[in-house]
Simulated assay, not measured.
Amino acid sequence: MEKHEIAAENSGIRIDKLITDRFSKWSRTLVQQWIKDGHITVNGAAVKSNYKVSAGDSIVINEPDPVPLDIKAENLHLNIVYEDGDVLVVNKPRGMVVHPAPGNYSGTLVNGLLYHCQDLSGINGVMRPGIVHRIDKDTSGLLMVAKNDRAHESLVEQLKNKQTKRRYIAIVAGVIPHDKGTIEAPIGRDPEDRQRMVVTDKNSKDAVTHFQVLERFNNHTVVSCELETGRTHQIRVHMKYIGFPIIGDPKYGPRNKQAFPIDGQALHAELLGFVHPDTADSMTFTAPPPADMEKCVEELRKIDR
């Protein structure tokens, strides 16, 4: 337990900001959660995060015991593209779930991260340590992971402010006539199937995807897609919406399914860019599509010309 009395020069400052600035070992998000849970009080009473302190206020901080993480660390031989004391970039294989969920507590990226390193951000809770953003189970490619709370907050803020760069490669059914374009269509839950997303004006969020054609065949197109926003299944939903669904996609793929040497959607997060949370250096990482996706393209060059 820590007890502090507010000096006159700090009067009028929000309590969450004051504590964060005064004690750099705690992130603002964590402090706000402690305030909400009643672990931080002012003059013996609970307050909100936007409470502005006054001279003479007595603040008591009861740092809660860490919640034990009951998730097994597993040596999954992760493909670590980059790592330092603040961030980690991993190339996730297709078929791997990012974080544990009911009925699926083993073999996830988080299981592998826990084996690889112990210093992960706790902001997203015990089930998602270090996880800043996700990609779907059957999508491969680059993910950034936070190794401490301050790095986590910085990366989330960059995502929110559209300062990160995330580019994907996809193989779609149909021939896209335009060399490039922008899909601006809001995405929300499908009211008839909660496991699917749809373009809708009801209970939706703005979603923007920029695309550029890389290679055309008689019946298919290889395209790069850059995310301006990051909604659930965004590229998969947007490509289906404009009439060019991603091949192999079990939820949104073409109805007339053609056999391809790929298990899951032909979608790969090939480029990831962000500003380093500590050094402020601009960092960009790339990873080529997996072998089975490359094989799909090779076969299309032979049979779909």
Score class of each variant (00 low, 15 high):
Lys251Met: 02
Gly243Trp: 05
Met127Leu: 13
Ala287Ser: 15
His4Gln: 15
Cys117Thr: 15
Pro250His: 06
Leu78Val: 09
Asp206Ser: 14
Met96Leu: 07
Leu120Lys: 00
Gly103Met: 09
Lys3Phe: 05
Lys92Trp: 10
Asn124Arg: 11
Pro288Gln: 08
Ala73Arg: 04
Ile246Leu: 07
Val89Phe: 12
Asp193Trp: 01
Gly103His: 03
Asp16Ile: 00
Thr139Gln: 06
His268Leu: 10
Ala45Ser: 15
Ala73Lys: 09
Arg167Phe: 03
Ile176Val: 14
Asp179Phe: 11
Cys117Phe: 07
Ile303His: 14
Asp190Tyr: 04
Trp26Lys: 09
Leu271Asp: 08
Ala7Met: 11
Ile61Pro: 05
Ile131Ala: 09
Ile183Gly: 09
Asp16Gln: 04
Ile123Gly: 12
Ile59His: 09
Arg167Leu: 12
Phe285Asn: 05
Lys17Thr: 05
His178Val: 11
His116Val: 01
Asn43Ser: 12
Leu143Ser: 02
Leu155Cys: 09
Met283Asn: 12
Ala101Pro: 06
Ala259Leu: 11
Thr20Ile: 02
Gly248Lys: 00
Glu298His: 13
Gly248Asp: 04
His4Met: 15
Val275Ile: 15
His268Thr: 13
Thr108Ser: 13
Ser282Asp: 14
Thr41Met: 10
Pro277Cys: 11
Pro64Ser: 07
Arg255Thr: 15
Ile61His: 10
Arg231Pro: 11
Arg22Ile: 03
Met1Pro: 15
Pro250Asp: 03
Val47Gln: 13
Glu184Asp: 14
Gly95Asp: 06
Asn203Pro: 06
Asn104Ala: 02
Lys147Pro: 02
Asp292Gly: 00
Glu228Thr: 05
Tyr241Thr: 01
Val175Ala: 00
Lys160Pro: 10
Ser58Pro: 05
Asn203Lys: 11
Pro250Arg: 03
Met293Leu: 15
Val89Pro: 01
Asn161Pro: 00
Asn50Thr: 04
Asn104Glu: 14
Ser224Asn: 10
Lys48Ala: 01
Phe244Arg: 00
Arg231Ala: 03
Ala46Phe: 00
Glu9Ile: 09
